[in-house]
Write a protein that binds this DNA or RNA. Structure first.
Lengths: 123, 123
DNA sequence: GCACATAGTATCAAAAAGGATACCGTGACA
DNA sequence: TGTCACGGTATCCTTTTTGATACTATGTGC
C-alpha cells in the first residue's frame, strides 16, 4: 500500500474527492492514465509519449498505479524484455475523471505546444 | 505563482490532464473546493468541515487556490476579523472534475465513517 | 569477445510538501 | 487591566516527492 495521503479522513463530506485525488496525483500519473485509455502500451512507448520523464519516475509511477489496481502490468518471458501496461477495469472507470480534467485544462489553461504541430502561428 | 509541476509539458497529448491536476492536487484542496460549491464559507467554517487540518495548511492551500484564481477571498474591515471564501467563476467551472472525483471515490473506495452516522456495523 | 534492445535498479541528493507549536493584532467588553 | 473571537503569521522540523546518473540482466547476432 503506497502513500496514504490522509491518515484518516473520518469520511467527512468530500473525503471521496481527496481519496480519489490521492490515487492519481503523482507527477505523470494523470497523463499515463490518459494514454492508456487508447490501449495497451509498452514501457518505452509510454516513455516516448511523456517528454522529459525519467525512467525512474516512469517506473515508480507505474508501480504505484499498479499497486492501486488501476493498471495491469504484463511481463513476457522473452529477451529483450517485453512488458506491457494496460488499464484495469477499475482504472478504466476513471475515464470520466480523466476526461473532465482534460476538458477543463483545454478550456481554461493556455497550453501552447511550442512548435512541431502548429508552426508558431499562435505561440 | 505557486509550484509548477512540470517545467514544460511541451503540450503533448494529455498534458492538460496533468496541468489541471497540478492546480488541485495539494492536500485538502479537493475537499476545500468541494465544500465551497455549497456556497461562501468563512475560515473557521471551512476548518470545522475539515477534520485534522492545521491552520497553517488551511491558510496555505487557500492562498494557493486564490493565486490560481479558483477562489475569491473577501476581507471585511471589522473586528473580530471576518474573511470569506467563495469560488470564482473559473473555480466553479471545475464542478465536473470535482464531482467526477467524488463519484469515483464513492463507487470505488471503501470510505467508512467510523461512527457518528453508522454505529460500527461496517467498521 | 562486443554491441544491441529492453525494462528496469541502485544510490545519493535536491526540492517540495506537510506538521507542530507558539505567537500576533485588532476592537469590544467587563 | 485581562479576556475574547477571529484569522491568521512565524519558525523550525519532518516527511515525501522528484531528479540525476550510473549500472544491470538477459538472449541474440556479428
Amino acid at each position: 500500500m503506497p502513500r496514504v495521503r490522509h491518515k484518516s479522513l473520518d469520511c467527512s463530506p468530500g473525503c471521496a474527492v481527496e481519496a480519489t485525488l490521492s490515487l492519481i496525483d503523482g507527477k505523470w500519473k494523470g497523463v499515463i492514465l490518459y494514454h492508456l485509455f487508447e490501449g495497451t502500451l509498452r514501457f518505452n512507448e509510454l516513455r516516448k509519449r511523456l517528454p522529459n520523464v525519467t525512467q525512474r519516475m516512469l517506473t515508480n509511477q507505474l508501480r504505484e498505479l499498479e499497486a492501486e489496481q488501476l493498471i495491469v502490468r504484463t511481463i513476457f518471458p522473452v529477451v529483450p524484455p517485453k512488458v506491457e501496461y494496460c488499464l484495469s477495469a477499475r482504472g478504466r472507470s476513471l475515464e470520466p475523471v480523466i476526461m473532465a480534467l482534460k476538458a477543463w485544462g483545454d478550456a481554461n489553461l493556455d497550453l501552447t505546444k511550442p512548435t512541431e504541430t502548429q508552426p508558431a502561428t499562435a505561440a
